[in-house]
């Protein structure tokens, strides 16, 4: 007798195969109807004449997402009278039985391992407070930084007294999220030569939603500019430093001096890249290294001083998006 075994398929996939995206799936219009009885339906057209994507389920505060008690409430929702309601304006996301609402414009919500750029706001007992665009300042412990010269030893009282020689108020740092405290504050660390004080460049802040998690957040662009895309929406654009990790002068990691040979043309490319990022952020476009390069190329036809004009910014962003799309196609 012939016996065949089928590999297991989740029920949702059987019901709705075309809309599956791994185990994480957005609500579809039909699906919304069967979990929802008291939902008023909106027309599929926005006021601006944009056709609404049926896979996007937008909710506003106090809107009922589902009245089915089988669902669990996630971030951005609350439960009242056994109904799951939204507490934010955003997009509904579902992972199995867990429903959450993702706000589209909000402060940084971090995860362990994220690369962030931050600014030192306070020097305290054995720790620095760092502004990372989150709902509280992150904490950088004295024990989570490298000593100059790469010496490996316990931090002593003498180190505690010269904390301002490492990082001072107003300094910019790039760091990694190491852990969370009980109240939701982040503990960050700079125990790698990749991380540490930032010099030789310019800072720009965009919405954290625009920077996505990817393999590397340290990029060297072909125009001779380095970019650090902090997941918290803080971005650092600096002059290229041509050295490999083992050539870094470990004595100089806490230096406050810019390198001496930054030419006017280097400065101009830094400014250009910063303005390109600003143009992309203004149009709410995801920011990554390739789109920055395309925007940079698109910006070359304009004078640097024109990059602040709204229509020029918009043109650059549109051109960069078109260039990315043409590569994909």
């Amino acid at each position: 007798m012939n016996v065949t075994f089928h590999s297991p398929v989740p029920k949702a996939a059987l019901d709705n195969k075309s809309n599956m995206r791994g185990s994480k799936k957005k609500f579809t219009a039909e699906h919304e109807m069967d979990i929802d009885d008291d939902e008023h339906h909106h027309e599929n057209k926005l006021e601006g004449g944009i056709i609404k994507d049926p896979t996007i389920h937008v909710v506003t505060p106090a809107e009922v997402i589902t009245s089915d008690a089988a669902f669990m409430r996630g971030h951005g929702t609350y439960v009242e009278d056994e109904k799951v309601l939204s507490s934010l304006a955003g997009v509904v996301e579902r992972v199995n039985k867990l429903i959450s609402v993702r706000p589209l414009h909000t402060r940084y919500a971090g995860e362990i391992g994220d690369v962030v750029v931050g600014r030192i706001t306070e020097v305290a007992q054995k720790r620095w407070k760092v502004d990372v665009n989150a709902r509280q300042d992150a904490i950088l412990m004295l024990s989570s930084v490298n000593l100059p010269g790469g010496v490996q030893r316990r931090k002593q009282e003498s180190d505690e007294l010269q904390m301002r020689n490492f990082f001072m108020e107003g300094d910019l740092v790039v760091a990694e999220v190491q852990a969370f405290f009980g109240d939701g504050a982040y503990s960050i660390h700079t125990r790698s030569l990749k991380y540490g004080k930032l010099r030789n460049g310019s800072f720009i802040s965009v919405s954290p939603a625009l920077v996505q998690r990817c393999k590397s957040h340290f990029h060297s662009l072909s125009c001779g500019v380095d970019v650090i895309l902090g997941l918290n929406g803080y971005i650092w654009v600096s002059a290229h430093v041509p050295q490999s990790l083992d050539e870094i002068d470990t004595e100089q990691v806490y230096s406050n001096k810019n390198k001496e040979d930054i030419t006017p043309s280097d400065r101009e490319s830094i400014a250009r890249v910063v303005n390109c990022i600003r143009a992309l952020a203004q149009d709410y476009i995801f920011i990554n290294d390739s789109i920055i390069s395309f925007a940079y190329e698109a910006s070359l036809q304009y004078a640097l001083k024109d990059l602040h004009k709204r229509h020029v910014m918009h043109d650059i962003a549109t051109e960069a998006v078109a260039a990315v799309d043409s590569i994909k196609a």
Binding site: H42, L46, E47, G48, I50, K52, D53, T55, I56, V58, T60, A89, G90, V91, L104, H105, A209, D283, Y284, I285, F286
Partner: peptide, 15 residues
Amino acid sequence: RTIRNRAEELAQKLA
């Protein structure tokens, strides 16, 4: 209506 339109516009851009 204003909030929803804005949210839908952003969701569209980020999708």
